[in-house]
Design a protein around this nucleic acid. Structure first.
Lengths: 107, 107
DNA sequence: ATTATATGCAACTATATGGTTGCATACAAG
DNA sequence: CTTGTATGCAACCATATAGTTGCATATAAT
């Protein structure tokens, strides 16, 4: 799996909105998803392709329509492989800055 | 705080590398940070500006140098306000798809 | 069969993004 | 006070990104 593709996919507000919509109701068609956004159907298709390539959405053809399923696994992955360590890190930052400034004043 | 700026800031591999470097050693100068990347100093400055605007990095001028401090708070924020719900969501996806396909076969 | 609906493909456009180079400024050190 | 070092500012460039419109195709419904 490609962590960069996942971060890039999540960087766009329309794509995050699409995921939020699928979170509310899974398995929506392209036509349904278009309703929630203010851009053309073709633009939505492009966003869904990007989400699918990041494995955040799984597309299933059914007859003339295409169903879209949320796959939250890559979000779990970026949490485990990237975000969690920063979550533990926390607020030592301000401490470091304080020490730094004190050091400066001692010179 | 602006969740979109945070996501966009995290979408670039060089910016994530900068955060990783500050995680390893906090309070680095621009010059130190440049060493870790394969792009020009000016490019690094731009990335750091984007990180600072997302509040992921705090810049402190000291004499002729500028110190950079990691601020992990916005990462905690996007986790709380966006990622955590998908982390709880998990693998009902495949179940949904299974039901969907069964439904299809019943028609 | 014909019509309506759902999606796909491709060309095109404007702006954003990530990078560069050149020059300027500010401070530290000898 | 001159030199070296750290950073800032601005113009410029190539590519990526996000969007559009127009036309084509495939399936469902009448």
């Amino acid at each position: 799996m490609n962590i960069d593709k996942v971060f890039k996919a999540l960087a766009d507000i329309n794509r995050r909105t699409l995921l939020d919509q699928l979170y509310l109701k899974n398995g929506q068609t392209l036509h349904e998803l278009v309703q929630h956004l203010d851009i053309s159907r073709q633009a939505v298709t492009k966003h869904l392709t990007i989400l699918a390539e990041a494995n955040l959405v799984i597309e299933v053809r059914r007859g003339r329509e295409k169903l879209h399923y949320l796959n939250s696994a890559p979000i779990g992955d970026i949490y485990n492989r990237w975000i969690s360590k920063y979550n533990h890190h926390r607020m030592e930052v301000l401490d470091d800055m304080k020490h730094q400034l004190e050091e400066e004043n001692d010179e």
